[in-house]
């Protein structure tokens, strides 16, 4: 009886914690504090098809898992067939290969004196405190102070 009660209390505490965490994450994403502008972009600022595919498959697998867990009475975790793992493996493997190809191309272009084109960062979300610009200014100031100290 005591153990069941303890289990229930811990369960409610964890549920409450997860709920607060979920709400905070969603609010921060909505307000722009968690920046998702470049969620499917690569390091050069261009949108990446591999990342987009990862995003789609992640949503599909998570929704399917949730649906099947809830559909079971009592709820239980479903068995994941090897085909789904193969699907994610193909997607992930292709991502790694494409990164290798792109890096090889970038290295050869940089070596030839014509580095690949990089996009300017585009701020599309609601600006938030501590954006890249502010941080850069702070960093520059800090660096200057440190350098002057070193010189003196």
């Amino acid at each position: 009886m005591t153990v069941t009660l303890l289990g229930l209390v811990i369960g409610w505490i964890l549920t409450g914690f997860l709920g607060v965490l979920a709400v905070m994450i969603l609010i921060k994403i909505w307000k722009g504090d968690i920046d998702l502008n470049y969620i499917i972009s690569d390091e050069n600022g261009w949108a990446s098809l591999s990342r987009f595919q990862f995003l789609i498959f992640t949503f599909v697998v998570s929704m399917s898992l949730f649906y099947l867990i809830v559909a079971n009475a009592p709820p239980k975790y479903p068995i994941i067939p090897s085909e789904i793992l193969a699907l994610l493996g193909i997607s992930g493997g292709s991502y790694v290969l494409s990164k290798g190809i792109q890096n090889s191309r970038d290295v050869s272009m940089t070596a030839a004196g014509a580095p690949p084109e990089q996009k300017d960062p585009k701020i599309t979300n609601t600006p938030v405190a501590g954006t890249a610009e502010t941080t850069d200014t702070k960093t520059t100031t800090q660096t200057t102070v440190d350098l002057s100290k070193t010189t003196t």
Partner: peptide, 12 residues
């Protein structure tokens, strides 16, 4: 608002 520039462009 999420950057999709170049999603269908050949970057290499």
């Amino acid at each position: 608002k999420i950057n999709t520039d170049g999603l269908l462009k050949d970057k290499t």
